[in-house]
């Protein structure tokens, strides 16, 4: 009796294994045939992938170099300021030293920090150009609108994605890319403003244009937060600004 049960059980197990093998081989067959049919496409795609990976490596290396050069540039600018201040103070030109510092602050050549707000604008999540209205992605006009709101509410310094807004800064688009100071910007757009935080905050949260953009049908993301110490970086061409004023002839020198 027991032998009979054992034989039955063994037979059942063998059937199960056969079934599993069948499924596995079926799957195996499908995957192999699919793989073979994709070989041609794969060759083309993999050559694209190879080129992409190589270019990506090159870009990574270039961005790393760029970061190093930027750091070096900031350090050199700081060193230049230190040398100028030391020399002037040692020679008794304290007033001139102070004046230079003040002018550099007003020009936007220095980092400034203090109370302020950060407004973040982003495209509608999962934006679909076939389904969503064109207003569901951030345009240059939206950024300008927020910057103007902040300026009109008392902002003393503004930056967009770490790019300082200075006298010559225009915010505009070329095709799908938004530029400021000739730098390309990509969403999300973080607009930082130093100034009266409550006034700027209220101006943004009560603005009809922004509120309209955030309705579900449009779906733009707009967040504003008050910050105890917002950091506004310096104009990144503070050592290379002559190109922006080379046509200006001074009429009346202050000295």
């Amino acid at each position: 009796m027991n032998d009979h049960k054992l034989a039955k059980w063994l037979s059942k197990t063998a059937n199960k294994q056969k079934l599993m093998l069948l499924v596995l081989f079926l799957l195996f067959g499908i995957v192999v045939s699919n793989h073979i049919s994709m070989v041609q496409e794969t060759n083309k795609a993999s050559s694209l992938v190879e080129s992409y990976n190589e270019l990506q490596k090159e870009l990574n290396s270039l961005t790393a170099t760029n970061e190093q050069l930027q750091t070096e540039n900031q350090e050199l600018q700081q060193e230049r300021e230190n040398v100028i201040n030391t020399v002037l103070e040692r020679e008794g030109y304290d007033q001139l030293s102070e004046e230079i510092s003040r002018i550099r602050i007003l020009a936007g050549f220095t980092e400034v920090r203090g109370e302020g707000v950060i407004v973040t604008l982003n495209d509608k999540p999962d934006y679909d150009p076939l389904r969503d209205p064109v207003a569901s992605i951030i345009h240059d006009g939206n950024i300008r609108h927020v910057v103007n709101l902040l300026i009109n509410s008392g902002a003393a310094a503004v930056s967009i994605n770490g790019i300082r807004v200075v006298n010559t800064s225009g915010i505009y688009c070329i095709g799908p890319t938004i530029l400021c100071n000739k730098e390309r910007m990509t969403p999300p757009y973080r607009i930082s403003a130093l100034g009266p935080a409550s006034m700027m905050y209220n101006a943004v949260v009560s603005d009809q244009v922004i509120n309209q953009l955030t309705i579900p049908e449009i779906g733009i993301i707009a967040n504003v937060e008050k910050i105890d110490e917002v950091v506004i970086p310096p104009f990144n061409e503070a050592d290379n600004f002559e190109q922006y004023i080379n046509q200006l002839e001074v009429v009346k020198n202050e000295d």
């Binding site: 001139l96 230079i100 020009a107 600004f241 004023i245 200006l248 002839e249 009346k252």
Partner: peptide
């Protein structure tokens, strides 16, 4: 000093602190 003053003037022009024409 002349070099420094010259640099100060250009920064002042950029900042909008000088009357300019052209």
């Amino acid at each position: 000093i002349e070099t420094i003053i010259k640099e100060r003037e250009r920064a002042a022009v950029f900042a909008g602190l000088r009357e300019v024409s052209n």
